[in-house]
């Protein structure tokens, strides 16, 4: 695949947060300030590049049946490395991100890319894919954090904005504001790119999809549990 196309697909067309709807937890939690969002985006990108690289190298070695645990171990290793580096060099950011730094392990973006891309493609393409996805994630976090910090706290990267700091909307800094801004941002992306709005959270990006019983139920016609999968199939 064309390298540039591969790199840029993660930024807009397949943006992990706004289009694929992966990694919602950190997106909502760390976007109260722009610097936190940047830190989180870069940390996730570093882990993503490392894990995609390692998993792509090992893709012919890892047995298919135990691949998810293997991926988790690899990812957890890289997360620990990033955690230790951040603790040593940017302790304030380490404190601010708190538990969400170690929760990168279970971030669907990273496991999802390992499962969907790195396990099927060569090392170079996987790393490019990781860079693109990481940039897309950082960009989405940056957009959301900008809205929430500028209007919610009246500042940008910690610097006060003269007029806005007198008329701030503190609710945007709280949890309801997070959900609200995220919903509006997805709607905006749908509107701008004239995309058919996504009805549901899909199984496509879900790392658990491989062993998800809800999905199997839908396939065997036993239960109508996982409507998502059915809808996706009918869309195709």
């Amino acid at each position: 695949m064309n390298v540039w196309k591969n790199l840029f697909k993660g930024i807009i067309r397949e943006n992990p947060v706004l289009v694929l709807l992966l990694g919602t937890c950190p997106t909502l939690a760390v976007t109260t300030s722009v610097s936190n969002a940047f830190g989180m985006g870069l940390a996730a990108m570093a882990v993503l590049i490392g894990s995609n690289f390692a998993i792509s190298l090992l893709r012919n070695v890892i047995p298919d049946k135990v691949r998810i645990p293997c991926y988790i171990v690899i990812i957890a290793g890289f997360v620990t490395v990033v955690e230790m580096i951040m603790h040593a060099f940017v302790p304030s950011l380490y404190e601010a991100l708190g538990v969400f730094l170690s929760l990168i392990v279970v971030n669907c973006i990273i496991l999802g890319r390992a499962e969907m891309y790195a396990s099927k493609n060569n090392v170079f393409d996987s790393v490019i894919d990781a860079v693109g996805m990481g940039l897309g994630f950082t960009l989405a976090l940056f957009c959301m954090a900008t809205i929430r910090e500028v209007f919610g706290a009246g500042s940008f990267m910690g610097m006060e904005i003269p007029f806005l700091s007198d008329y701030k909307v503190p609710i945007l800094q709280n949890s309801p504001g997070g959900f609200f801004v995220f919903g509006c941002l997805i709607a905006l992306v749908n509107k701008l790119f004239k995309r058919e709005p996504k009805k549901e959270f899909s199984c496509k990006g879900c790392p658990s999809a491989a062993f998800c019983a809800l999905k199997d139920g839908a396939k065997n016609g036993k239960a109508e549990n996982c409507q998502n999968e059915k809808k996706e199939e009918s869309e195709k």
Binding site: L21, P176, G177, G178, F179, F180, F182, G183, C184, I186, A187, N190, P197, K198, K199, E200, F201
Partner: peptide, 12 residues
């Protein structure tokens, strides 16, 4: 707003 966005707004 259909689908996920309205769900997020109602979660808010």
């Amino acid at each position: 707003f259909r689908g996920v966005p309205i769900t997020l707004v109602s979660a808010a």
